[in-house]
């Protein structure tokens, strides 16, 4: 059967999922810290961490979806993504956050804060961007 949900929920946000950092260390998803992302990106030759500030949160095409507008990197490029309300983002210095933390906790058993305008999320870009 098919559904019309905008994005399928990935399995790795489930509490207890094993995540491998760039140096090979294994951690549970709920134990990840801001430094883990920063240090992993430092090791990576291709990926770079950017700071993406939440500028707007609007309703999406379907009731369970939201459109989040980010201001990405030093250039403050405007990027919109549509995700399910329970989709967690990692906020610098704070940890996992979603637009509907109750639902995230319900579905993934992952403790979450409420994602708000002004929050600065961890995002990735390619190092080799022109």
């Amino acid at each position: 059967s098919s559904s019309s949900s905008p994005v399928a929920l990935p399995p790795f946000f489930m509490r207890g999922s094993i995540i491998q950092l760039a140096d090979g260390e294994l951690k549970r998803v709920e134990d990840l810290k801001t430094e883990d992302f920063i240090q992993s990106a430092e090791i990576s030759s291709e990926l770079k961490i950017d700071s993406s500030t939440v500028e707007r949160i609007d309703s999406g095409q379907s009731p369970n979806a939201v459109v989040i507008q980010f201001s990405v990197g030093e250039l403050k490029a405007q990027v919109c993504v549509e995700v399910l309300v329970e989709y967690p983002f990692f906020v610098f210095g704070q940890g996992w956050s979603s637009c509907c933390p109750d639902r995230t906790t319900q579905l993934f058993e992952l403790s979450c804060a409420k994602l708000c305008v002004g929050d600065v999320c961890v995002s990735l870009t390619l190092r080799s961007l022109r």
Binding site: I19, I49, F70, L126
Partner: peptide, 25 residues
């Protein structure tokens, strides 16, 4: 007896959104 199960391991970067600025201007 319990058979050992292979536990999936996910790379760190799959948890982070790839936000690529559109190249305008």
């Amino acid at each position: 007896n319990v058979e050992p199960r292979s536990v999936p391991v996910f790379p760190w970067h799959s948890l982070v959104p790839f936000l690529e600025p559109s190249q305008s201007g």
